[in-house]
Computed example of a mutant assay.
Amino acid sequence: MQRYAFFAETAVETLAITTFNAIMFIIKQSKDLARYLQKQRSVKKTIGFIPTMGALHQGHLSLTKKAGEENGVVVCSIFVNPTQFNDLTDFELYPKTLESDILLLEKQGCDLLFLPDVAEIYPSGISPATAYELGYLESVLEGKYRPGHFQGVCQVMHRLMEIVRPDRLYLGQKDYQQCLVIGKLLELIQSPAEIIICPTLREPGGLAMSSRNLRLSAREKQNAQGIYEALSYISRNIKPGEVKGIAERAGALLIQKELTADYLTIARAEDLRIIDVWDGQTKAIALIAAFMGKVRLIDNMII
């Protein structure tokens, strides 16, 4: 790509893009990011932050748009974090689309892209220095099926929050359990940042937008819509009383679409305590993790 100009404030790899009549800085080192953001804070600008692992889609861009509406500066990061993958193959196959990611962020009006390497995020190595006390949240659903995953999420988010120090942190509802985990992390590290959870964006058939969708064939993507169909079935038909039966019927919809579920669960939205009997009043959420072929997809729907 021949669209970069060096931003001459430092000698490190700090870039500025000027296409589309806008400027988006690309910064690779935390010290330069801190210097830039301190200047913004000095003129009373608030910082909105969207952490990502790249392979961006309209769901990510909706977070960027929301952050731009509510803050003076929008920072997005792209970093594929090795410590949150308990499957090495999944890490190696994670989609990488940096050039298109840069274009999308620029068009959306992102002010700054933080693009660190592993050494920048983990200068002392990737071995965790802290064990985060996440309690029940780490024992169920994603915590159960992906041991160590949320410790890795907390490890990278702790570091990113120290570097960016945002006023507001923008996350997508698709990763609902992760949103709750990050909320717990902010309590543990006493961060004043406000978490904004934005709605899941979906493709025309209802499939939640996800970077992993890039690994699906056309047929697999069609079948993967069964996840949304199962969630919608629960939302339409759930009634006060035992919920085991409706979960089983929704699970049958997954099987019909060749999806293999890790879990299909109804839980309290507040804390993800599993619900066996619903009182009809408690805010609940249906959550699914299922494999389409070798690709693991997650989704949820508030009831």
Results as ranks from 00 to 15, higher is better:
111 D>E: 07
57 H>P: 02
132 Y>G: 06
158 H>K: 10
106 E>M: 15
218 A>Q: 05
89 T>E: 15
144 K>A: 08
79 F>M: 09
167 D>M: 01
106 E>C: 14
141 L>R: 14
98 L>R: 09
159 R>V: 03
62 S>R: 04
109 G>V: 13
161 M>P: 03
222 Q>Y: 11
145 Y>H: 14
123 P>C: 14
166 P>K: 09
8 A>H: 12
241 G>N: 12
236 R>E: 11
164 V>D: 00
120 E>H: 12
280 G>S: 08
253 L>G: 00
72 G>H: 06
61 L>N: 04
292 M>N: 10
114 F>H: 07
297 L>K: 01
221 K>D: 06
128 P>Q: 09
160 L>K: 05
216 L>A: 04
268 R>C: 15
133 E>T: 07
116 P>W: 11
260 T>Q: 15
64 T>C: 15
183 G>R: 15
125 G>I: 14
44 K>T: 04
77 S>Q: 10
151 Q>E: 00
14 T>N: 03
276 D>A: 08
82 P>F: 07
101 D>E: 13
95 P>W: 05
12 V>S: 10
56 L>R: 10
271 D>K: 08
246 I>L: 09
38 Q>L: 13
59 G>C: 06
242 E>H: 14
30 S>W: 11
99 E>V: 12
179 C>I: 02
282 T>K: 12
9 E>H: 14
69 E>D: 11
148 G>Y: 13
187 E>N: 04
122 Y>L: 10
38 Q>V: 03
24 M>L: 12
208 A>D: 02
175 D>Q: 02
22 A>F: 09
125 G>L: 13
104 L>H: 08
276 D>G: 02
172 G>I: 07
180 L>T: 04
213 N>I: 02
151 Q>F: 06
169 L>D: 00
4 Y>N: 03
19 T>S: 11
24 M>V: 10
136 Y>C: 01
249 R>C: 15
48 G>F: 08
241 G>Q: 08
250 A>N: 09
251 G>L: 00
110 C>Y: 05
293 G>F: 00
47 I>S: 13
225 Q>K: 09
221 K>I: 03
207 L>Y: 02
58 Q>M: 05
276 D>Y: 10
192 P>R: 12
206 G>T: 04
62 S>K: 00
128 P>R: 06
143 G>K: 00
112 L>Y: 02
286 A>E: 06
185 L>A: 03
38 Q>W: 05
215 R>C: 06
167 D>G: 13
55 A>D: 00
209 M>F: 03
67 A>K: 02
86 N>A: 10
283 K>W: 01
225 Q>S: 04
281 Q>W: 08
91 F>H: 14
268 R>K: 15
25 F>C: 06
282 T>A: 12
252 A>P: 01
44 K>C: 09
263 Y>F: 14
239 K>P: 01
173 Q>N: 06
281 Q>D: 11
130 T>F: 11
109 G>Y: 10
197 I>W: 05
169 L>Q: 05
301 M>D: 06
31 K>C: 10
31 K>D: 15
31 K>P: 00
297 L>Q: 05
72 G>A: 08
125 G>N: 09
20 F>A: 14
275 I>S: 10
12 V>M: 08
291 F>E: 04
